[in-house]
Amino acid sequence: MDAVIDIRGVEKRYVGRKGETVALQKVDLTIDEGEFVAFVGPSGCGKSTLLNMISGVIEISSGTIVQEGQAIRGINRRVGYLTQTDSVLPWRTVEDNVALPLEYRGVPRAERVARVKRMLELVSLEHFAHAFPKELSGGMRKRVALAQMLVYEPKTLLMDEPFGALDAQLKLVMQAELLKIWQSEKKTIVFVTHDLSEAIAVASRVIVFSGRPGRIKHVEEIAIPYPRDVFKVRFLPEFERAYESLWQELAPEIERGEDL
């Protein structure tokens, strides 16, 4: 398989008035086509920073990120990015938000309406098509952003804690949907989560980041075969083994993270 995203010696230093903050240190990572990679790590270890660099929203301090043979410089339009912070446009209704990427691509109205409708059904927001974001809960806005990202069918998806604001049950439903889309449409997904079981349930590879400054500390291949049933996967012995091993790597980082 070919590398979709190739991260080489990437570092991020934020320069502020009070000097430099090193957010990420020497990250090397190759993500292959069709992989489902999850990032876990204590908060503040640079997971969002890395996604921001892959999407081209912020500059890379040193190192390179290459996607499909092309170095990333400036905004990256070859990914779909579900950001950690709310990016749904408050002045557009739910359906107009989801239609946005299609509008930019000049998709004709009739096709736009049909595709938006299908997406809203997928995230079960079809009754809220005409609502403004202010009328929705945080979890619902995340689902609008998800629909908005999926509607234009990017091959590579960056997702920053997409299901963090959802209740436990809906979270499982959304994970199952995402796995289905990933498999049927052969997407490559980079998925940040603070929920270890979520990472193991969906990902083929879990990357553990150390506390600040972030580095890749450990990589765990998840041996559970696809298609997976996210509702049952956590009762498998492979799940438990992966959990044990990841937790051992992660626990000291989280403790360290707290006294930072």
Binding site: S55, G56, V57, I75, N76, R77, V79, G80, Y81, T83, T85, D86, S87, L89, W91, R92, L100, P101, E103, Y104, R105, Q148, M149, Y152
Partner: peptide, 24 residues
């Protein structure tokens, strides 16, 4: 955030102006 998000979705500068800057 809105400008970046729409640019990644494929907005050109006129799109950003019309759908983000002016309404905001």
């Amino acid at each position: 955030i809105y400008i970046h998000a729409t640019q990644i979705m494929g907005a050109n500068s006129w799109n950003v102006m019309r759908t983000v800057i002016i309404p905001s």
